[in-house]
Design a protein around this nucleic acid. Structure first.
Length: 440
DNA sequence: TCTGGGGTCCTAGGACCC
DNA sequence: TCTGGGGTCCTAGGACCC
C-alpha cells in the first residue's frame, strides 16, 4: 500500500458490445449481446441495454435469448477488439512504462513511474478525466471506467464502483473504510466456492473477514489463499504493476454443437487443434515440453491428461501424436462435448537454423541402444515420435519436430566473454537415457 | 437449447534423488 | 523390524478471472 494514490485501473465498458455499437450505428441504444451464438454458446459481453433485461456475461446464450429476444446476437469480431485494445494500451504506455494488461479491456497503470506533477487526489483525478477523454479519442468514442488508489486491490475495486464511464479515486487512509462494509466477493480471487467456505464460518463482509485469524483462514482456505486473504482483508497489498509477463501456456479448445463418439473423428479434431496450437507457438517464437489434452464428456465432467517430453517442441505432428495417445487413455464412449490441446512448460530455447543441414542430421541412423532407451521411456512416460540423434561440434543431442526444416534442439546457450557457448544440460534425462555411445 | 475460450495460480500425491 | 527428510518434477483437478 502506497502513501499516494498512484495505481490506476482502467476497464473499458461492455467492451465487445461497445465496439459493435461504435461500428454499427443501428445498434446504438439497443441491446447487443456478443458471444457464442450456437446452441451451446455463452455470453461474453452484454451491452448495458441488454443488462437491463438481466443478461450478463457467462450466461448461456439460450437463456439470454429468452430474457431479451430483441437483442442483436453477434459472434464477435476479435480483430476489431484487438485493434481498439492496442490503441488503448499504447495510449497507456505513453503515460507510464509500467502498464500491466489483464485482458483486452483492462489494465493497471503505475502512475508513480509516470511523469505526473501532482500525485494528490485532486491531481490524479484531473489526470484521469483527461485520460478518459483520450481513451475516447483513440478508440472512436469508447468509454472506460477508471479507479485509482494506493494498491492494485483498491484501484480495481474503485473502477467497479461507478460504471459505466466512471472515475473513482480512493484517498490514502480511506482503504479500510471502503472495504469493511463490502461483501467478501468484491475481493478479486474470492469466487463462489471461497465465498461459500467463508459463509460456513460466518463470514460475509470484509469486516467479518478481518475478525478471522490467519491460522484459521489458512485452515479453511489453504496456505496461499488463506494468507493472501488475511492481508487483502486489511487492505494490505504490495503487489507491483508488472509490465512484461511471459506466457506460461498456449491452448486451443472447442465445444461442439453435439457430442462426438467416433474415434477417427476425435483424432482428426485433435490433430487440427495441435496444428493450431503449434502455429501460435511458432508465431510467438516459443516451444513447449508439456502437452495437455482436455476432454469434456457428455455429462460435463472435465478431464485432462498431460505428458512431458524430454525437450521442447513446436511441431504440430509431434504435439498431435502425443495428444492422440493421451486421448486413447480416456473412455469417450459416452460422447465428447469439448476437446482441447494445450502446450505448457514453454521456453524460448533457440529453434532456428542451428542445423543448416537438417537432412543430413535426420539421416543419422538410430542405433540399437537408442531404440532400447526409447522403448524404456515409452513404458515409463510418453512415447516419443520421430526422435533423431544429431551431432555437431558440441556433441550429440536429440532433435525432434523437424517440420518446415526447422529443428528444436535441447541446447542451452550461455553468453561468455569469449562469445556464445552451446551446451547440453548434463542432467537432461533424455540425454542420460539415450546418449549414444561416444566415439572416444 | 444449461453451462465458451483463453488463461493463471494452487493443491495434493507420487516418483525420484541425495 | 520399522520405516528420514527435504527438494524437485510431474500429473490431475479445481478455483478463479475476463
Amino acid at each position: 500500500m502506497r502513501a499516494e494514490p498512484t495505481i490506476l485501473h482502467v476497464d473499458l465498458d461492455a467492451f465487445f458490445a461497445a465496439v459493435e455499437q461504435r461500428d454499427k450505428p443501428s445498434l446504438r441504444g439497443k441491446p447487443v449481446v456478443v458471444g457464442g451464438v450456437g446452441g451451446r454458446g455463452v455470453v461474453a459481453t452484454a451491452s448495458y441495454e441488454a443488462r437491463a433485461f438481466g443478461v450478463h456475461s457467462a450466461m448461456p446464450t439460450a437463456e439470454a435469448r429468452r430474457r431479451c429476444p430483441n437483442a442483436a446476437f453477434l459472434a464477435g469480431r476479435f480483430p476489431a477488439y484487438r485493434e481498439a485494445s492496442t490503441a488503448v494500451m499504447e495510449l497507456l504506455r505513453s503515460i507510464s512504462p509500467l502498464v500491466e494488461p489483464l485482458s483486452l479491456d483492462e489494465a493497471f497503470v503505475d502512475l508513480a513511474a509516470a511523469d505526473l506533477p501532482d500525485l494528490s487526489v485532486a491531481g490524479v483525478s484531473a489526470f484521469a478525466r483527461d485520460l478518459k477523454q483520450r481513451v475516447s479519442d483513440v478508440t472512436g468514442g469508447l468509454t472506460g471506467s477508471v479507479g485509482i488508489g494506493s494498491s492494485k486491490l483498491i484501484a480495481k475495486i474503485a473502477s467497479e464502483l461507478d460504471k459505466p464511464d466512471g472515475l473513482v479515486v480512493i484517498a490514502p487512509g480511506m482503504e479500510q473504510d471502503l472495504l469493511r462494509p463490502m461483501q467478501v466477493t468484491v475481493i478479486p480471487g474470492v469466487g463462489p466456492a471461497t465465498a461459500e467456505s467463508l459463509r460456513r464460518i460466518g463470514v460475509h463482509t470484509v469486516a467479518e473477514l478481518e475478525e478471522i485469524s490467519a491460522d484459521e483462514l489458512v485452515r479453511v482456505l489453504g496456505r496461499a489463499q488463506g494468507s493472501n486473504l488475511y492481508q487483502l482483508a486489511r487492505a494490505q497489498d504490495d503487489r507491483p504493476v508488472v509490465a512484461e509477463r511471459e506466457a506460461k501456456s498456449i491452448s486451443v479448445e472447442d465445444t461442439y454443437e453435439s457430442d462426438y463418439v467416433d474415434r477417427k473423428l476425435l483424432n482428426a479434431l485433435v490433430e487440427r487443434q495441435a496444428a493450431k496450437v503449434t502455429e501460435r507457438l511458432r508465431k510467438a517464437r516459443l516451444s513447449g515440453r508439456t502437452v495437455t489434452l482436455k476432454v469434456r464428456l457428455h455429462d460435463f465432467s472435465t478431464h485432462t491428461r498431460s505428458a512431458t517430453l524430454p525437450g521442447p517442441t513446436d511441431d504440430g505432428r509431434t504435439v498431435a501424436r502425443v495428444a492422440r495417445t493421451l486421448l486413447s487413455e480416456l473412455d469417450t464412449s459416452g460422447g465428447v462435448r469439448l476437446l482441447g490441446v494445450g502446450v505448457s512448460a514453454l521456453t524460448d530455447w533457440i529453434q532456428d537454423d542451428l542445423f543448416a543441414d537438417t537432412d543430413e542430421a535426420a539421416d543419422d541412423p538410430v542405433d540399437e541402444e537408442t531404440e532400447t532407451a526409447l522403448s524404456a521411456m515409452s513404458r515409463r512416460r510418453v512415447w516419443l515420435p520421430g526422435l533423431d540423434v544429431v551431432h555437431d561440434e558440441h556433441g550429440a543431442g536429440w532433435v525432434w519436430g523437424s517440420g518446415r526444416g526447422v529443428v528444436t534442439v535441447r541446447f542451452e546457450t550461455t553468453e561468455t566473454p569469449a562469445g556464445k557457448v552451446r551446451s547440453f544440460p548434463a542432467d537432461d534425462p533424455a540425454l542420460r537415457l539415450s546418449r549414444p555411445a561416444p566415439e572416444e
